[in-house]
């Protein structure tokens, strides 16, 4: 286990060299977010009734603020590209002969990347949230907060395992970036990044409930906002855990299949 903590330390140091990149990414990221908030404000201003779905304007605003926070905590940054490059360039041969598990190694690098990112992004994100403080709601009670943190952790794992599995495609195809971008597009709309999923027509919501996407972002935010409770909350957590385990199994399976192919080619 100790060796993986080393990975974490090295990863943080390495990632902090990109602090300017992280800062630029966070600050640039606020521009479309602000634009989105303006568009919603215009929509509410032109409406007779003060609600969209079951959201008032201030609830809608806090939804987007929380999406930003959860995204900063859990998004996979460059991990998928790096894993694919490791496979393509043959760097993984180094790991096959060492007593280190590649998936765990990458998982700790992912955590270190998030920590380094947060160390930089915490300043602009906090400033932004403070700027919108009248819209920022605090969780109802300690339990809600704890459940939110738990589901955010599961979200991070789910994000990582899905990205890892996608990157495994590099064993089979030369260029994985198109696949990654297609997945990213699906995640972008179906995970609640663009709009809260419960403003969709009911039929669409039922379809989405059968995919892992809502658990990649939307679920922890709804938990925080207290929009899910009772049996639904329990079902949500079970589904999220199911998808984390499924994505982990897919990642393991893809790796073992890929390695077989890799050694066959590398001979």
């Amino acid at each position: 286990m100790k060796k993986y903590w080393h990975v974490l330390g090295i990863g943080i140091q390495h990632n902090l060299t990109y602090r300017f990149n992280f800062l630029a990414r966070t600050v640039f990221g606020f521009i479309p977010l602000l634009a989105m908030l303006y568009v919603w404000r215009a929509i509410y201003a032109g409406k007779a009734q003060p609600e969209v779905g079951s959201y008032s304007l201030s609830q809608m605003t806090s939804y987007y603020l929380l999406i930003t926070v959860v995204d900063a905590l859990t998004a996979v940054n460059e991990d998928d590209w790096q894993i694919a490059a490791d496979i393509k360039d043959g760097n993984i041969s180094n790991f096959l002969i060492k007593p280190i598990d590649y998936l765990s190694y990458r998982l700790f690098l992912f955590f270190s990347g998030r920590l380094a990112y947060l160390a930089v992004a915490v300043i602009p994100v906090t400033l932004f949230v403070v700027g919108f403080r009248q819209y920022f709601v605090f969780p109802r009670d300690g339990t809600t907060l704890a459940l939110f943190l738990l589901s955010t952790g599961l979200t991070a794992l789910l994000q990582f395992f899905i990205s890892y599995t996608m990157a495994m495609l590099a064993f089979w195809v030369l260029e994985v970036s198109t696949f990654i971008f297609i997945m990213f597009a699906l995640e972008y709309i179906a995970s609640g990044h663009m709009f809260p999923l419960d403003i969709l027509p009911a039929a669409w919501q039922r379809v989405l409930a059968f995919t892992p996407f809502p658990y990649q972002l939307y679920f922890p935010v709804s938990v925080y906002l207290g929009r899910i409770s009772g049996v639904e909350l329990l079902q949500g957590f079970l589904a999220q855990i199911f998808w984390v385990v499924a994505a982990w199994a897919a990642a393991r399976l893809a790796w073992s299949r890929g390695i077989r192919r890799y050694s066959a080619v590398g001979g």
């Binding site: 568009v39 215009a42 929509i43 032109g46 409406k47 969209v52 779905g53 260029e175 198109t178 696949f179 971008f181 297609i182 597009a185 699906l186 972008y188 709309i189 663009m194 709009f195 403003i199 969709l200 027509p201």
Partner: peptide, 29 residues
Amino acid sequence: LMWILVEVLWFALQLAFVSVLYLHTETIG
């Protein structure tokens, strides 16, 4: 061809987003 597909998907996504917005409003401005 895959890159064309990626761009088509992102374009469709924008259009889908607008359809969702206009489920809830008649006009923006």
